[in-house]
Structures are given as C-alpha cells and as structure tokens.
Write a protein that binds this DNA or RNA. Sequence first.
DNA 1: GACCAGGTAGCAA
DNA 2: TTGCTACATGGT
Length: 295
Amino acid sequence: METGTIPLASLSGGLDLYRTLESGQSYLWRRADGEMYQSEPDPGTWYHTVVDDEVIRVRTLEDCLEWQSWTDAETQVRRLLRLDDDLEAIVATAPDDPLLREAYDAHRGMRLVADPPFGTLISFICSAQMRVSRIHTMVSTLAREYGTALEFDGETYHAFPTPEQLATATEDELRELGLGYRAPYVVRTAEMVANGEAHPAEARNLEYEAAREYLCQFVGVGDKVADCVLLFALDFDEAVPLDTWIKSAIEEYYPDCDGGSYATTSRAIRDRLGSEYAGYAQTYIFHHLRTGSGE
DNA sequence: GACCAGGTAGCAA
DNA sequence: TTGCTACATGGT
C-alpha cells in the first residue's frame, strides 16, 4: 500500500473535505463510518472511492490531506478533488454579490469535484425528484449490486459499475432496488454507452451549449442533469445547473435573470455569477441555501 | 396522510 | 417552442 500527504497550507483557498464530498455534487465517495449526510464526521474520518479499479482513501488531519491506495495516487487525488484549483483567486474575482459573498464566506474550502463521467451521469439521472441522501444510497446500491468488488487493506469496496456491467441490469431489478421510475432511464442509458452509441466523455470536446445538447440524448437526461455532468465531471466550470434551489434563488435574488426558458435563464444567470466560474458560484449557493446556513 | 425531493418524457395546443 | 401531467419512493 502506498500512502502520502499533501500539506493543506500548499492549497490555495484550503480544503474542506466534508463540504466537498457531502454537498451533493458527488455520489461516488463513501465515508468509513457510514454516516454520510447524517452528521459532520469526526476529525480524521476516511472517505473512499474507486477509480479505474483502484481504491483510494483520503482524510484530513490537522495540517494535511492524507491519501492511501495501492499505487501512488497523488495525481489522481489532486485531480478528483481539484486541489490545484486556485480557490483563493476564484473567490477573490467572483462578482461582488451579497448572496454569493455570504455563501463563499460560509463554506470556505469547499471545492468542486472532478468525478468519472459515467458514474456522474447515472448518479444525476437518479437524482430526479430525490433527496441528496437517497441519491447517495441509490448509487451505493448500484455499486454493491453490479460493481466490481475489490479487497483493500482487509476491507471490501465496490467500484461503480462499468456501462457493460450496468447494462446487464433489468428495469425490474432496478425497481426492486428502489430506483422507481428512473429504473428504465438507467438501463437504457447504460446500454447506449455500453454499445458505443454515445459516451458522456465525448461532450468534453464540444463547446458548452453543444455539450449540454449532446448529453441530453441520454435517456433521463434533460438540461439540468446535463449541466451537473458538465460541471462535476467534465470541467465545464461555467455550467450552472438550474435545480429547485437555484431557481428559488433566481426568484428571490436575481429575478431579472429569469428568461422563461432554461436556455435563456441559463445564459443570464451564468453571466450574473461570473461566467468562467459560474458553476463554482452555483455550487456554493446551492449548498448554502440547501443547508440553511444563512439563517 | 399530505407534502416534498439537485426533473424528465410524452403529449397537446 | 411552451405548458401540462405522470412518474416511485422514503422521510418528515
């Protein structure tokens, strides 16, 4: 087993692992104590994920981020948690907006994630009309039932299923597992990727709005889910998912940005939240409002 | 026992 | 294009 540490002082803007992994951006990490979304973890609690059949564990200690894996995973960890983002600069150059300032101040150190595209796609197909904690449960269930089991340091971990593995699932099976009406969406999207019809990673090469359109070809994916995949897996930092929380924020704080359709509202709110890093702003506002931190 | 949750597909006007 | 409505399920 390899292990290593990254000094927190070396990260611009710091790192809040808890808020980064439990703010509803990523559903592909789990917490060693199994209490995600219940309470804040004790200091030093491990989180783990599986990427390319390698288990990766991370935790924050007093002054560093510690990681463990079979091989040197520092590059991967830096990528997954976007440790090289200049968070201080992103916050400093954000639009001077009261709500955004409040959100950035309240959750200092929260970073965007860069998760694998397929798992992110399926996660957010499952997210429709669903609470954050339940989305996490559904994704964990899919991993347990269809993903590759891996032994690491005496424990068993499950990778999120590959498109091929998930395409073997039937709609009835997924309904049994509690996915409800999302079951056929997951199966059909997994089949589309498995048979080579399309792949979410392909969107990376497109211009933003074309990329969003591309992702909408998957079953169960509309503009909002597409934006989540672009933001949390494909490095489109300008993507602003228009979910229930951000819509209520628009209604209350940015009413002039409501252009009626998703496309026009999207352009207006991206512009208002700073274009280049509008997605960062959205993620902070989402978390701030959803957790009621401002009250 | 309503009401709600990081919405989308399908269909009508 | 825009505007309904049905869709599963578990928690409060």
